[in-house]
Design a protein around this nucleic acid. Structure first.
Lengths: 361, 361
DNA sequence: TTGAAAGCGCTAACAA
DNA sequence: TTGTTAGCGCTTTCAA
């Protein structure tokens, strides 16, 4: 059967469409309770649901927002951003169009066009990982950038505070007593790589630890890369070999685990490691569970949507909002092994942490 | 500045709105080439983009589809379904509303209402993993179910062929020469668990291998669970210990890797393992890379969208469409170790496969 | 307290 | 080949 219209309800209730509209939108009290009841009843019996399309046309306000992303929806990485954005949208009565472009510029242009045609009330431009991006032509000026910073400036955007995150990770290791701390970095150079490295250097300086360039190694961004880098590091002579490793991300950290275990090294007894990303289904499932720095994906998604919808004041400045990356403490960090003596015995259990590590900070 | 309307273009080009509409929609040839040019030009200069809202109201057809899911967008698991659905939508000129309900029924009801109000042309109801679901009230009859099967029947749906997938996995092991093949199953009982087990039993029967109940063990669906189950299995006396393990999913398989490596067992020399899901960032990054069965997420997403949009004929029957789960051959399957003698030496390299395994099938 | 009617931007039937 | 106009379903101003 065809959709019920407002006039059907009006006819059924024996009132005008104005009255029905007034009742359905809970406008003022003008309408008598009795009429109100009658209209409600009629609406229910004819199965009436107001058309958002007609309403949108009339109001020039669709309660709809477009989210353009490179790949966040189709990749296992940053989906929590979507959750944050969606929750905020729903709480504010908005629906979201999700368009993944796969990084294709033609598709991106088409997406912007389609969303504009759809008269979305707001737009969000999201990236899977923290990047600096060119502002695509045709994007409305009020577009909010999520997990990326527009090259040009003059737009609202939110990104993780990777510098502070890198610092926090390394501080974790310094606090556990480490002095020879390596940074296994990606061999691409996303801005996150640079920023985390800055944090690393900053904390070493803070702690009076000289920066040793041989401890900063780059490799492919994968478990394989992490493993290769770790092998390099662990082959260093005793006095220069790191007792702890900070990894660009959890995948590379997983590679460090493999390298360490292949050598019969125990984490964290023989080597401490800290990752980055707190990637679901990866970080927590390492053995032992990986201490890492979380990317605040959910919070960023929510922030972006709230700013886009104008329900969050702080988004008013045309500045990049930095969001904190919290350290997630699990079991891969402990004190450094005794300085001189090599480990001379293997612990019986590999799942237990040395007690001093648990209370170290 | 305000949005340009069709009448603005008409005025600028000195023609009627009809003409503009005709030109913009490439209708027939009626319009002279010269006028056509003029209109195009005018549209460009005033920055005109037709309003999909007005068009949708007029045509009672929004070129919009709603995708309701439990959590696929916000979880690292089944995002590829979205990619398939989106690609198909885009190719057919449709936009998709994505609504993740997080499994909350109130949110789900609200989502259905909102999508109905939005007059979407089609709806897809998707689950993160293969399940049997109750059909939510209010869902249009033509809704397509993605990665789930409606309890009630009478709807179009697509799910992975988990029975055949389980069979394929085990067949892989049988073909490599294994006779003692364990199944590390989840301790929940999703339909996929049952189906994959059926496939397992079927292939054993096919190969004339008696089913040994001690080789079917259930555990928590995680690396930890997989590890515990593997420990159980590997503690079995020699003559009953499995030489190969089929795991309910890749996460559990990762746990098997941990258990094996902790015992100094080499995969695949001492133990072969096959996973399920081909989970991105997990299966391929194991050491050695995990042979597994892929869930055809992208294909299922595409299928669902094409059927929902009516551009795929086979979706006409009100039946459940089974989609093949292909085996992804990597390096975790080899021939069983020599039957009687225990492995008496360790290979020097752990990354190399025994050559016979590579050519085994 | 309620209703009539204009108009949101577009398409398409009909007229010229 | 082009233009006039009704109407998609709704909200809202103005009048009763």
């Amino acid at each position: 059967m065809a959709r019920a219209r407002i006039s059907d309800v009006a006819a059924a209730a024996g009132v005008s469409v104005t009255t029905v509209s007034l009742v359905m939108n809970d406008v003022e009290s003008r309408i008598s309770d009795e009429t109100r009841q009658r209209v409600r009843e009629a609406a229910r019996t004819v199965g009436y649901a107001p058309s958002s399309v007609a309403r949108g046309l009339r109001a020039q306000q669709t309660r709809t927002v477009g989210l353009i992303s490179d790949q966040i929806a189709t990749t296992p990485f940053a989906g929590r951003m979507l959750a944050g954005a969606q929750d905020a949208a729903r709480e504010n009565g908005h629906l979201v169009y999700l368009l993944d472009t796969g990084g294709d510029e033609t598709i991106e242009r088409e997406a912007i066009r389609a969303l504009t045609a759809q008269q979305v009330d707001a737009m969000i431009y999201a990236c899977m990982w923290h990047r600096v991006v060119d502002v695509p032509q045709g994007l409305p000026a009020q577009t909010v950038f999520l997990d990326c910073r527009p090259e040009a400036g003059g737009h609202r955007s939110v990104v993780p505070d990777d510098r502070a995150g890198g610092a926090a990770a390394v501080r974790e290791l310094v606090a556990a007593g480490h002095r020879r701390i390596a940074y296994i970095d990606t061999d691409e150079t996303p801005i996150a790589s640079t920023l985390r490295h800055e944090g690393y250097v900053e904390v070493l300086a803070e702690a009076g630890i000289p920066v040793d360039a041989t401890l900063h190694v780059r490799a492919e961004t994968s478990a394989l890369g992490g493993r290769a880098a770790a092998d390099l590091l662990l082959d260093l002579p005793d006095e220069r070999r790191p007792t702890a490793v900070f990894c660009f991300n959890d995948r590379m950290a997983a590679g460090v685990y493999i390298a360490a275990h292949r050598r019969g090294l125990d984490i964290p007894r023989d080597l401490s490691v800290v990752g980055y990303d707190d990637q679901q289904l990866i970080a927590a499932e390492q053995d032992p569970p990986l201490t890492t720095v979380a990317l605040p994906h959910y919070a960023m998604g929510r922030w972006a949507m709230e700013v886009a919808l104008g329900v969050r004041a702080e988004g008013d400045e045309d500045a990049t909002h930095l969001m904190e990356c919290p350290v997630i403490r699990r079991d891969s960090v402990g004190p450094p092994p005794a300085q001189v003596a090599k480990p001379n015995r293997r612990r019986a259990s590999h799942t237990e942490r040395p007690p001093e590590a648990a209370t170290d900070r």
